[in-house]
Design a protein around this nucleic acid. Structure first.
Lengths: 357, 357
DNA sequence: TTGTAAGCGTTATCAT
DNA sequence: ATGATAACGCTTACAA
């Protein structure tokens, strides 16, 4: 039944079945016709020996393919998946790669790790980078030197690397213009993290100059096209909780009451942040949009927010992932990958209105 | 600089550096002392040839290890990661496996896919199953036949497979008892999915008998220890939105107003479901806990719910993941894996109180 | 339809 | 400290 000695190989199976290894191999790959009788003999022998099919490691060496696509996430895993945008992108990616890969290998882009990035030691056929920081460049180089396809989602990584991008700046400018058109002059901006270390607080020109997260910088640039002097506060991530923290700083005084010099509109760089802002506003007795206009960015469905029609920018998150997957698949097939740029669309919701003061 | 012909191998590097392949290999693995001079010569040659280090595919064949641990998730990826419990488990897993693996390979347990589960074709060193359904058994068998370590988190998969489990039943009974002690006699239960196809609706004895999701069944059994006849409604997943849907069915009449025969307490099988229930209750003008007691299960921090102190059961989710990772690491090291059972703890919050009628 | 044979790129072992 | 050699387990032309 079971050989105790050592795991059976395809050669053992072939021998037991009285066929050549190539025939046995072909029985499992199914790539060539095999006489039904032989097929059954081989399968029987395999069952006898407890052979569970070709060893993927050996197969991948021989084929030059492992069937694995690596995904490098900038943030910590837990943080990353809390973001519905990330999850949506992953969904698109999975979908587009369903035929071309066995699965996605989650790779951390650990800034603490000084040496070889894990991505250089993983048997992957291609790599997708999401929201990568400047440091990620190293990893990309390591992968490219290996000749593997690389696609970057929303991150700038040099020439020759296909990127999936969004018109973050233009879209941000568009929503800012909407707010300006409503008549708001006194606004505050709440941004995504600017640096890899996710510092919370006022965004000074110095900080902005040293910022490493492109998405944040681009969206901020768009907002500042319309509101060049609006104060901005950075958060530690795209979370409702973070929106709440930032909103408290922007809207409330030390006692937790609305400040008199508070802005009449808050432009947040993500919907989750906007939801946090709204929550704080309502807790403080401010009505949205009557007393305060709040707008976001993303336009992704958030669990539990069904009814809340945020005024926001809709981004094609699943499509972004799908596009990345498609480019990977193309490159795996030998074609050159190309960059894909997506446009966002403004969506008027119920959280923006003219100022009451 | 770069050879156009074909990717350089370690043999090419060795030749260029005038050393043997074994020496070159050792330079990269760093497992044996090499004279500094040789080392540099090899590295220089590697740079010259654009050699990016040993091919992980070949290395994994030779070593018999790929460094990859597969994670099989029952639900669709997106669904799975929306659940903070899953993310917490993943975090623990990542943490515990940081030294033993390059990364986690996300594998879908696709019930539609009739043939070979992806997990059988992936070059993984071990597999962790999370919240697996009955069908998953197949996959487990395939992996075990291959001789790979398998650990199951919250799912029953036969003898010999180390499992990470929770005292779901006892904990559920405990929280039900809390509600009963408060004096509630008219309660409704809102459950997690019972079957792989995630059907919403009343839980009949027939459905329950055919249920395939152990966690749901166990928690329900615990609740029914205290409330044997309480009506139960199943949801399509652990989501706020799902809690809202179920709560509407349980609490409201066709016009959206609270029914007069509504229960005085609702016991939900997850915190997210409970949050959804609370939201519907409040929308309908019912105060929690004055008019309605709501309890959950999980005790995990949910983004945006900071203040909400749910009466719930706290489960050690990160620890579950960590324990799974530790067992995998042990088994990878040749030791036998063992099952780990965790106890949950009751946490009194502000959402439960004696009934007002 | 089946068999032969040549690798795929490494690394571990054992000498030297 | 370095080198020769033999696997690791499989796939795929190509031949029969």
């Amino acid at each position: 039944m079971t050989s105790s000695r050592r795991r059976a190989t395809i050669a053992d199976v072939a021998r037991a079945a009285g066929v050549s290894t190539s025939t046995a191999s072909v029985v499992f790959s199914g790539k060539v016709n095999v006489a039904e009788a032989t097929r059954e003999r081989v399968l029987a022998a395999a069952g006898e020996l407890g052979y569970a099919g070709p060893d993927p490691r050996a197969a991948s060496l021989r084929r030059g393919r492992s069937g694995i696509v690596g995904v490098v996430l900038s943030a910590e895993l837990r943080h990353a998946f809390l973001d519905p945008v990330t999850t949506a992108v992953m969904e698109g990616l999975t979908e587009a790669l369903a035929d071309a890969s066995v699965g996605l290998l989650l790779l951390r882009d650990d800034p603490r790790e000084p040496q070889a990035p894990a991505v250089a030691e993983a048997p992957v056929d291609a790599v997708v980078l999401m929201g990568c920081s400047a440091r990620t460049r190293e990893a990309v180089d390591a992968v490219r030197r290996r000749g593997l396809p690389v696609v970057v989602i929303e991150g700038d990584v040099g020439e020759g690397v296909p990127g999936i991008t969004l018109d973050n700046r233009a879209a941000s400018a568009a929503i800012a213009r909407h707010v300006a058109d409503l008549g708001h002059t006194d606004v505050a901006l709440i941004t995504l993290p600017l640096e890899a270390d996710r510092i919370r607080g006022a965004v000074s020109p110095e900080r902005l100059a040293a910022a490493t997260v492109d998405v944040t910088v681009d969206r901020l640039a768009g907002l500042r096209e319309v509101y060049p002097d609006a104060p901005a506060v950075s958060t530690a991530g795209s979370l409702i909780d973070e929106g709440m923290i930032a909103a408290r700083a922007v809207l409330l005084d030390a006692g937790g009451a609305p400040r008199h010099d508070r802005p009449t509109a808050i432009l947040a760089q993500s919907d989750l942040l906007a939801v946090g802002v709204i929550r704080i506003a309502e807790q403080a007795g401010l009505r949205v949009p009557d007393d305060l206009t709040v707008v976001g960015f993303d336009g992704i469905a958030v669990d539990g927010l069904g009814a809340q029609r945020l005024t926001t920018i809709e981004q094609p998150a699943v499509e972004k992932g799908r596009a990345a997957g498609e480019q990977v698949a193309r490159m795996l097939a030998g074609d050159p990958g190309e960059s894909v740029h997506f446009a966002c669309t403004f969506r008027a919701g119920g959280t923006s209105a003219p100022p009451s003061r």
